[in-house]
Amino acid sequence: MFPAQYEDLQIMSHAVVGFPSLEENEKAIAGLAEAGVKLIELQVPFSDPVADGHTLVNACYEALKHGGSVQATLDLAQRVCARHPEVTFILMSYLNPLYRYGLDDLFEQAAAAGIRGMIVPDWPVEEIEPWLPKLDALGLAPILMVTPNTAPERVAKITSASRGMVYVVSRMGVTGHETQWGEKFQNYIAEIRKHTDLPLAVGFGVRTADDLGALAGKAEVAAFCSQYIEWQRDDGSEVAAEKMHSIIETIPQA
């Protein structure tokens, strides 16, 4: 399940469905689960992922050539959710593939497959709100994004439509580059906490043990995604899982 507020920092990591291949996805996810990752995003690859940096753009492009799709994601979810009950699986997608599949069907089938949450970066809160009763009934948590330039009244609106956790975009820009975790960032986190009791998942630029050290005690979840996909791309899923295990070991415990 999702962590409780102020629980020790957990890692959320990532699978791009079809990257490097559908078979490899299952092995990679098993490796992540064994390494101690408690939350895993299953990303539906998309032709035009505008919130992602080059690592995930290229992974999407490869994934589409290897059978990645909404259906493949639901099929994979069915298998991995059953096999790894200790892991919370989250569907990550841009809106269009889900929209084309049919949102009603998609939500029902994702929930039935065991998916617990959903991150859709180009789906604004106004468009999500009408779906909340259905999503709540299905137990499918929309995890909405707050960014450093989001106005306070909008933070309130976004956090109240979020379920499970709130995704805190650490800085301006797209995924896959460095982030600074100084006072400015801490004030930003404190501002968001004024509006919500939900745990915070911090993403964009979480790439090193130092980043995790800086986030420990400040956020409940660190989204460790682009760097993991780079390991997977360069060293294979097995080595990537070993590296993930080592880095999880470094997280300071309260």
Partner: peptide
């Protein structure tokens, strides 16, 4: 479809890939 920030008629496949 819905992509590139807006909803319109897109050339796309059944999976919603442009």
């Amino acid at each position: 479809g819905i992509a590139q920030g807006y909803k319109t008629l897109f050339l796309q496949n059944d999976d919603g890939q442009l």
